[in-house]
Write a protein that binds this DNA or RNA. Structure first.
Lengths: 252, 252
DNA sequence: GTGTTTATCGTCAAGCAGACGACTATGATC
DNA sequence: GATCATAGTCGTCTGCTTGACGATAAACAC
């Protein structure tokens, strides 16, 4: 039976990105300002159409590079540095999610270390790192007193799902190191967990846990006093990806 | 700026279903035989095009009902019975995954209790429950001596991802009860875990764990001797969905 | 030097998991 | 009906992990 275009409705397929980082002890997501309707002037997630010859992961990596300059970490090259973690999150396809046409969006989750200022086509005023609580509250006022409008489309739901994925995934994997630079201290890693979970962790028990888990951290030999106080050992992420037993998230 | 159809390439969007059940102590997935090219005569996952006015979850629930007669369990109605668990799995969009055209498939995972014979439009010879190891081995011979051909398209990858999701999810959630009938014994639940994980579990420790986790199981008062031996208490699934601490999967 | 900050090591008790003994209640077999 | 096999249920013990927290170490600010 030959290909019959009338047999199925045509869709537009996009990728949207939840790019998370930890800045100033807060979990932040990258938001870009929409330059055209619908939702003109509102904040939204970066994203764009999947091209005709592109895989979904390729499209997500391309959008990530365009918006942040980050290369996506290729899981098949374990020793690669400076690449952001990128994984598929979920797919959103409500018929009414875009008023113009039928759009299915394959959302991806990226975790990146703290970066210099974001860029959106070179225009800094149209991209920012926003604390996720600010993006998720429907109305109110942000830290700078500016009124907060809800994210465009269903992007608040997507951010919420991405944050929840990140929160649960650092429990049982070594993914929290994706938020850290190449070399980092135990204290810096602990502050990542504290920012993502929004809780305080005991420094002594955390130190025992992460240094006692084989393959999680490998010492580089160096030390640093970045945070003040006694110099701390520097580590790199080890080869282990799964934490067993997991890092336990404290009860609320 | 008005809607410009030339600004994006058109896609076909489908849902594919990984329907898992436990039959005769083996984890099985529903497979249907393809009646037309490409891959005519080969086994594939049930699925079909998403309609113009349908949400993705609706499309998946519709396909599930068409192929198995199962209603999807609506998470907003906790007390509902007899509904299969249905959740989005992942989305597959390699440009070459369907030789006819550009198809993006949103795979869903369904977990169902052991059912009567499957039906595919009423034709039983074109649908079957196949042990997942049989579906995942690329070549060889099945249990009945018939030669095994790989699944159509990228469906082997999708089955593999679905099985992995189910294996990990029964660790930290009460989802294993989705494989059981409304009333079941601790031993039946244990055999579900053993089939899904492919391991043997200690009946005494398992019994202590599941009966000691608040909200996991609620006794119905009845007993049964279905499996022979001493009569066992019957339980229903409790309201808890998350298991904390999780059920630990034994090391290989 | 004194105080402050952060890192790191140690101790202790509670809880949980794995290994496994013992007993119970049914059906099957002789 | 006695014996056996099967499956379910209750306990015990030991080792590991965690959470709470004391103590020490090494830097900086004054």
């Amino acid at each position: 039976m030959p290909y019959d275009p009338s047999a199925f409705p045509p869709f537009a397929v996009t990728v949207d990105l939840v790019v998370l980082t930890v800045r100033r002890h807060a979990l932040c997501a990258l938001a870009v300002r929409r330059g055209e309707p619908p939702f003109q002037g509102r904040w939204a997630l970066p994203g764009g159409f999947v091209r005709a010859d592109e895989d979904l992961a390729q499209a997500a990596a391309r959008e990530l590079a365009e918006e942040t300059g980050l290369r996506a970490h290729d899981p098949s090259v374990p020793a690669q540095d400076n690449g952001a973690h990128l994984e598929q999150l979920a797919t959103y396809g409500d018929p009414k999610r875009d008023p113009r046409m039928r759009v299915v969006s394959v959302a991806h989750l990226a975790l990146a270390p703290d970066l210099p200022a974001p860029r959106a086509g070179g225009d800094a005023s149209n991209a920012r790192w926003a604390p996720v609580e600010e993006l998720l509250q429907q109305t109110g006022y942000g830290r700078d007193g500016e009124p907060v409008a809800p994210l465009a489309f269903d992007h608040a739901q997507i951010v919420s799902d991405g944050v929840e994925r990140a929160r649960s995934k650092i429990e049982y994997s070594s993914l929290a190191t994706a938020f850290c630079p190449t070399e980092f201290t135990v204290g810096e890693l602990r502050r990542v967990y504290e920012a993502v979970w929004g809780v305080a962790l005991d420094p002594r028990n955390f130190h025992r846990k992460v240094t006692g888990t084989p393959g999680f951290l490998v010492p580089t030999g160096g030390t640093t006093t970045r945070q003040g106080g006694r110099p701390a050992q520097l580590f790199r992420a080890g080869g282990a990806t799964l934490l067993n037993p997991p890092m336990l998230r404290p009860e609320v």
